[in-house]
Simulated scan of single mutants.
Amino acid sequence: MAGRRYEGTYTVSIDPSSIPNFGGQPDPEPTGPAGSVVIPDQDLVKQLLDQMELKYLVDDEGDLAAPWEEFRTYFMFRGEGEQAVFAVRTFYDRAYTVDDKPQLHEVIDDWNRRTLWPKVYTHTHDDGSVRLIGEAQLLIGLGVGLEHFVSSTVSWVRASIEFDKWVVETLGLEKDVESPDDGEGPGN
């Protein structure tokens, strides 16, 4: 993709050399000029996900989603003009009870103090189940450096994966992963 013009900036191909190596695949050959300013769009994110060799789908609302076994990460564009935002939001599937919320708040407060992203919060559903959501956002309305966009998006995906591992370890949920569901305790 050579270059489509958007309000004084160009969108260009992602420089694959700026993508961290996922799963030991060799790095693709670099393309596109370094230092390019882009207004990211869904096609650019699809290119990035393809280069990261991540499976994705487009949901009913038109957002890109990359599914993992225990969570889904969405790549969303919201707003217009200078206020346009790109958000990477991860919905963790492990359900907790309302009684688990104080412990969850302690744990995610610790995460949020020690890390830059994703910022994690709880969401209580109508059925009373509580789930965790992680989110990172970037203003994109005036354009953003392509390398910054790529490295931020990749970092946010990696941090979402790391948070899932961290919360399992921190809450002692490894036994839930390794043993059959006994219906007791956090995450059940």
Rank of each mutant, 00 (worst) to 15 (best):
M1I: 05
G3T: 10
G3K: 10
R5M: 11
T9D: 00
Y10F: 10
S13M: 09
I14F: 04
D15G: 04
P16G: 09
P16A: 15
S17F: 02
I19Q: 03
G24R: 02
G24A: 10
G24D: 05
P26S: 12
D27H: 04
D27R: 13
P28V: 00
P28M: 04
P28F: 11
T31D: 13
P33V: 05
A34I: 02
G35H: 06
G35D: 07
S36W: 02
S36E: 14
I39N: 06
I39H: 04
D41F: 03
L44P: 01
L44I: 11
L44Q: 15
L49C: 01
D50M: 07
D50F: 05
Q51N: 11
Q51Y: 11
E53R: 13
K55A: 12
Y56A: 04
V58E: 15
G62N: 08
A65R: 13
A65M: 15
A66T: 15
W68D: 11
E69Q: 12
E69N: 11
E70L: 10
F77A: 05
R78A: 14
R78Q: 13
G79V: 07
G81N: 06
A84V: 02
F86M: 12
V88G: 02
V88I: 14
F91C: 04
F91P: 00
D93A: 12
R94Y: 00
V98A: 14
V98R: 11
V98H: 05
K101N: 00
V107S: 13
I108H: 04
I108G: 04
D109E: 10
W111H: 03
W111M: 10
N112V: 08
R113K: 13
R114T: 09
P118Y: 11
V120T: 12
Y121H: 15
H123C: 00
H125Y: 13
H125D: 12
D126M: 04
G128Y: 06
S129G: 04
G134R: 08
L138I: 06
L138G: 07
L142I: 00
L142E: 13
G143W: 01
V144T: 12
G145H: 07
G145S: 13
L146W: 01
L146I: 06
E147M: 03
H148T: 15
F149W: 11
F149V: 01
V150R: 03
V150L: 02
S151H: 03
S151C: 01
S152G: 01
S152C: 08
W156I: 13
W156N: 10
V157F: 07
S160Y: 03
I161H: 12
E162Q: 15
D164V: 00
V167F: 11
V168H: 02
E169Y: 07
L171E: 07
L171A: 05
G172Q: 09
E174R: 15
K175N: 08
K175Q: 10
K175C: 00
D176C: 08
V177A: 05
V177D: 09
P180E: 14
D182Y: 02
E184H: 12
E184D: 09
G187L: 06
G187Q: 05
N188F: 08
